[in-house]
Design a protein around this nucleic acid. Sequence first.
DNA 1: CAGTGGTCTAGACCACTAG
DNA 2: TAGTGGTCTAGACCACTGG
Lengths: 251, 251
Amino acid sequence: MTARYMDIAGELRDAIVRGEYAVGAQLPSEAELAVRFSASRGTVRQAVAVLATEGLVGSRQGARRIVLGRERSQSFAELNSFAQWARAMGYRVSGQVLEQRRLGASVTEAARLALQPGDPVLAVLRLRSLDGEPAMLERTVYAGWIAPAVERIAHDCESITQALFESVGLVFAYGEHLIDAVAAGVQDAQLLAVRRGSPLLRQRRVTTTHDGRPVEWSDDRYRAGSVTFSIRNSVDANPLVRQMGDLRPSP
Amino acid sequence: MTARYMDIAGELRDAIVRGEYAVGAQLPSEAELAVRFSASRGTVRQAVAVLATEGLVGSRQGARRIVLGRERSQSFAELNSFAQWARAMGYRVSGQVLEQRRLGASVTEAARLALQPGDPVLAVLRLRSLDGEPAMLERTVYAGWIAPAVERIAHDCESITQALFESVGLVFAYGEHLIDAVAAGVQDAQLLAVRRGSPLLRQRRVTTTHDGRPVEWSDDRYRAGSVTFSIRNSVDANPLVRQMGDLRPSP
DNA sequence: CAGTGGTCTAGACCACTAG
DNA sequence: TAGTGGTCTAGACCACTGG
């Protein structure tokens, strides 16, 4: 049973993707949509809010909403699972554990995982491929309490996220991500089949459960050219707008 | 006159930042907050929705909201203005135009700016610094209609976004961004003072006005280590959750 | 000026969590 | 089972856009 506003969002999204509303064109007013879908204005607003966060439409007070694009920008909800992201992008995905061992948490790892230095953790080195090509090297440190479940996962498992959900009901609910560029080290270069020092896109992340308990701290390095992060944004509720508004020459 | 829900969001945000609600702690229920702030439940929900998009709190049906972090994750609303972003991060920011010339749009540029190939555009090469250190090289192509206003801007202007707003009222309302890693080319290396081939974080973007008209297409390259993108996300409304839900072993 | 989106209210029912 | 967040309604007023 999906929510009514999700259905409406879906229908509008489909219409936009089909080109029924061209990029730059106006969407019907909230009142019209409420009539068309036999829903209240509030529900319609929830629906278009979904499209707005997907980057498909923009809005300003007083004017009708306009279509900004025909493709959903990358959802950061999918940033927690490499496999899910890759499949959504149409890739054939695979993975292989290269190393796996228990050790004591370093100071950094302890801080990220809300543990004490020296507490037991599980370090895993995993190579992930897209369409058979090495694309990403994943160095993950799991908190000790989840280590046994991780060790039971097949070494060529496609989606760790899904495996941990199915085996112990664990949900990777929240993530914090740091994205930057680094030079390939010796091991990076060898395993990703690139030259040492060549550019890699790095994504470091902490993932937590629903109640905020850290599960893993990971350093993922993507071969240049293998992936691109895509974002669509707007200045709505942007402080800059207000700041500039104050500076605007009076009429 | 700020909106009521923004005030409430502000008070709650301050309380979280002050540590009044610790990371991992529960927020009061919507009903309690409604009473405390003498607002309806709907308004309170709008307020906590703001905190949720800032990545400060998370929520799940049936359980109280919990605090995820004490710092706002980087707002992508600020992704459109280098100067605004840098100032928000506490940097002293400067910029210098190195080259500026009118020419005809290439096929790629025309496509990005919704023009015809050969249409007049203005190409600008700008070096941007943080605390006096070269940090980013910006290669921007402006649509012809805005070119005159851009040419009037001082070559050492800090914020182009603000300058164009003040001079002609232009608002950079929407942006589409592609983030990846590339190797420094000859010019990149020279101007950013790094070795050729060293890693750079690249952000390509198209910026448009409120009505969806493209203003600029830019290729920005950051020196490795100078900046990091930071994101906080959640699986709320994540398709994966539903997909996994279907797979859950029946009770 | 009419139309539109932004904000707010008051009340209702449901799905889910947690003790 | 009680409490909580998720969804939905119907109506109101305001700020802003655009002709």
